[in-house]
Design a protein around this nucleic acid. Structure first.
Lengths: 110, 110
DNA sequence: CTATTAGTTAAGTGCATGCTTGAGTATCTA
DNA sequence: TAGATACTCAAGCATGCACTTAACTAATAG
């Protein structure tokens, strides 16, 4: 199994680039071909393909080639990696918040 | 008001770096000083300070200086920018899923 | 007062990364 | 079959960014 740390890195790194986020936003509207995706982006087709490779390796996007057209679509499960990472942190904040509650309660009865 | 797009960019860019994520993970355990934060990181103190600047500008971390010690802590609200961005996309996926449902329903009664 | 601790700031370096161009390969259309 | 379309791949460039070192300020300890 590919390490969790590595997959977290791939996803966050992928989403760290504004062009790739724009691609994800566009793909959220529905599946689309590579060339259609490139039109509003004002960069070369080759650059778009490079971004798509990174997005696909990160698990955020799935692409499939039929004939000469590659269709790209969102892979919703990829985003759960982000959600999970944040939720894991939040759990610890909440634990701390609980302990703070205990601490405050203790001041009532020394 | 600072544009939403810009704040999304700051947050995703901040979390795109593995060292900064490690800092966030450490801070999730509770507030800590800059030097204490630097110890397990194997980089110079100056580098840590630079990461903290980015994290603070992104709204993910809050720091406060008392005497000569700067204490760093998580700013939980900063993470809602990420959550919100993903939820916004997911809304569209779900809309599309609904329309797919409609489409399948239509095939029953042509 | 001096020495140490804690952090700040600036300048410089090297590598990663986003992007381009150009040449090549299937696939589809007329 | 000829030409257009939709990518694909490789190489090179240029900027950004993480990191270092070094010199500095401010607070605390002895």
């Amino acid at each position: 199994m590919p390490s969790k740390k590595a997959s977290i890195h791939r996803v966050f790194h992928a989403l760290g680039d504004p062009t790739r986020r724009t691609i994800v936003e566009k793909l959220s509207e529905g599946p689309i071909s590579v060339s259609q995706l490139a039109i509003p982006l004002a960069i070369s087709l080759a650059a778009v393909v490079q971004h798509l490779q990174i997005l696909e390796e990160s698990g955020l996007v799935h692409t499939e080639k039929t004939g000469r057209v590659r269709t790209c679509r969102i892979e919703p499960s990829g985003f759960s990696v982000v959600q999970q990472w944040i939720d894991d942190r939040r759990t610890v904040w909440e634990e701390r918040f609980d302990r703070l509650g205990d601490l405050l309660a203790d001041t009532d009865k020394p």
